[in-house]
Design a protein around this nucleic acid. Structure first.
Lengths: 303, 303
DNA sequence: CTTGGTTACGTTACCCGTAAAAATT
DNA sequence: AATTTTTACGGGTAACGTAACCAAG
C-alpha cells in the first residue's frame, strides 16, 4: 500500500464519486476504481458501499478517512518543506580567531548577498578543532591562518595577510617612522596566547633575530590586545586586517616588517572528497578577490 | 516521492551504510543507492555526504530523519490497524455436512445483510477436520452436529435439531400414523456413512433397542439419501431441517421418535482464545434465533 | 440517454536485481 | 585485497489510459 492509494481514496471520499476524484487528480476514472479496489482487497473489506450510482463510506472507510487525512497531509508538508529546504543553500563555515574576526563577517555578508536565503553557520575555534570538524564533516569549509596537518584536507593559501607592530598614542614609538629591531628589546607586549598562528609566527621571528621582550598581556581576543595598546602603552603584533576593523578613530600607529618576514596567508580548507557546492565555489572566488588589501592608514617600518 | 523512499532512507540513516540497510530491507544495495539518489534529486540537495566510504547525514538529512520517522511509523500503524479492521469483517466459517447443507446458506445471507461488505468463507467437512482447522486458526468459528473433543474449543449447543424417519410414497409406512420400533426390523435403510453424527446417533439408538436393519444405501450426501427414499422405497433417518429444504413438493412422509431419543443440538464452536468479533457475536445471536423450527409438514410417530 | 462504475487489454514507466566498474581503506 | 557505492542493463510488474460494457436514474 502506498501514499498514492490514500490520496486517491481521500479524493473519492471528498468528491463522493470516482469520476470527480479522477478529474481532480488528473488521472482516468478506471485508475481510481482500481486503486480503491486494491485498497479494499488489501484490507479485506469494502471502503465504499455502491448503492446505485452513489458511494457511501462504510465503517471501515470512515476509519480510514479520518486517519489517512492527517497522514497524507503530513506527508505532503514534509515533502514540500524538504523541497524548500533544498532550495535553501547552506554553509557551515569554520574559521580561526583572526579570520573569524576580520574576514568571516564580510564573507557571510557577501554570500548572503549572492545567495538570498542562504543559511551560513559560523564556527570559530583553533586550527586543530577546525581540522577535526572538517574531517567529521561537521563543517563544509573553513578559512584558517595556521598550518593544516591532515592529508585528507585540501588547503588553498589564497588570501595574503601580514602582521604589523602596533603602538598607542602615548607610546614613544608613536612618532617614529622607522624602527630598528633593537628598539623592540625589553618592550612590553600584549600578545595572543601560545598556539595561535600569530603568536607562533612572532615567536619564530624573535627566535631567529634573538629579540628579548616582555609579554605583559596575554589574551585570545584581538580587541583586548588593542585596548592594552591604546590605554596601557603596550605594544602588540597582529594582522593588519584586524586593525582595519578595530581601530576606527583610535589613535594608533603601525609598523610593517620590511623583509616580509611577517607575511603569511589565510587558507581555504575543505575535505578532499567534498562536493563543491555553488556556495563553496563562490566562497573561493570571493577569497581570491580579498587576496590583496591596501593599508588605509599611515605606517612606519621595522628594519 | 513515496513512503518506500522514506523507509529506505530511514534504514540507511539507521544502519549508516547502504549495504547494511539493503540487507535489513531484503533488497539489493543498488536499489537502496538509487532510492537515496532519487530523494536527493527530488529535494535538490544531498541527504548524505559521502566522505570516503562513510556516510554522514547532512543538515537536510537530519531534518528529514526526524520528521520521516514519525510519518513512516504512523503510516505503518494505520496500515496494520486497517488490515486488522478488515479481519474483523471476515468470517471463515466451518460446518459439518448437515449444517452446511441446511443452515449455513441462511447464516451467510444473514451476515451479509447485517454487515455489508463482509467476506464469509465457508468450509464444509467432518467434525474432526473442522476441529483441527479451528485449533490451527484456519477457521474463525464453526457449527457442527457431532461431538467435539478438544478442551481448547468452546462448544455452545444452541440450535435444536431432531432426526426423523422418512419414507416415500410407495413405501408401506406412507399411510401409517404410528409405528412401533418393531416395524423397523429388517427394513432397508439409506444412511449416512459411519462417522457422521447422524449415523452415530442412529446406531446408538439401534444398539440400545436392539433393532436389526439392513443398510442398503450409504452416501454422504443428503440429497442422495432422499432420492433413494423417493425412488427406491428405502427408509432413511436424517435431520428434519434437511427436509425442509430438500423435499419441496416431493411425496414423502416423516415420523418423529416419541421419546426424543433422536433429539440433538447443533453446536457453535470456536477457539477458547478467540477474540469475539462483532461478526462472531452476531453469528451466535442468529443461531439463538434459529433455535426452534416448526415442522411444516404432516408427520407420524415412532413409539 | 446520460452519468458513473467495472472489466478488459495494451502501453509505459518504474522497481529491482545482476553484473561490472569505480573508489576508498 | 576487501568493502562499499555507483553505473549499466534487462526483466517483470505496477500504474495508467482507452475502449467497451453494465447499471441506475
Amino acid at each position: 500500500m502506498t501514499i498514492r492509494h490514500l490520496k486517491i481514496f481521500l479524493a473519492v471520499a471528498e468528491y463522493k464519486t470516482m469520476s470527480a476524484a479522477a478529474e481532480k487528480l488528473y488521472i482516468s476514472q478506471p485508475t481510481v476504481s482500481q486503486a480503491i479496489r486494491e485498497l479494499e482487497e488489501h484490507y479485506h473489506g469494502l471502503l465504499f458501499e455502491r448503492l446505485g450510482k452513489k458511494l457511501y463510506l462504510t465503517e471501515m472507510g470512515k476509519i480510514l478517512l479520518t486517519r489517512s487525512r492527517d497522514l497524507v497531509q503530513e506527508f505532503q508538508r514534509l515533502d514540500d518543506s524538504m523541497v524548500e529546504q533544498g532550495k535553501k543553500m547552506m554553509l557551515r563555515l569554520g574559521s580561526t580567531l583572526t579570520v573569524g574576526t576580520c574576514l568571516t563577517p564580510e564573507i557571510i555578508l557577501h554570500l548572503e548577498e549572492k545567495f538570498p536565503g542562504i543559511e551560513v553557520r559560523s564556527y570559530v575555534s583553533n586550527t586543530q578543532e577546525i581540522e577535526e570538524k572538517l574531517l567529521k564533516s561537521e563543517l563544509d569549509a573553513a578559512v584558517v591562518e595556521g598550518e593544516v596537518q591532515s592529508p585528507d584536507l585540501v588547503v588553498l593559501p589564497i588570501v595574503e595577510d601580514m602582521l604589523v607592530l602596533v603602538c598607542g598614542q602615548e607610546h614613544a614609538f608613536y612618532t617614529e617612522k622607522m624602527l630598528l629591531k633593537e628598539a623592540l628589546y625589553y618592550q612590553k607586549f600584549a600578545m595572543r596566547e601560545p598556539g595561535s598562528g600569530t603568536r607562533q609566527l612572532f615567536e619564530e621571528y624573535r627566535k631567529v633575530h634573538q629579540i628579548p621582550i616582555e609579554i605583559s598581556w596575554e589574551a585570545n581576543c584581538p580587541r583586548t590586545l588593542i585596548n592594552a595598546v591604546l590605554y596601557n602603552k603596550a605594544l602588540s603584533v597582529m594582522s593588519f586586517r584586524l586593525l582595519k576593523h578595530e581601530i576606527r578613530h583610535d589613535k594608533i600607529r603601525i609598523f610593517l616588517e620590511q623583509n616580509k618576514e611577517w607575511n603569511r596567508k589565510f587558507k581555504l580548507v575543505y575535505h578532499r572528497n567534498k562536493y563543491l557546492t555553488p556556495v563553496i565555489r563562490e566562497l573561493e572566488m570571493y577569497l581570491h578577490q580579498c587576496k590583496k588589501m591596501e593599508l588605509s592608514v599611515k605606517y612606519g617600518w621595522i628594519r
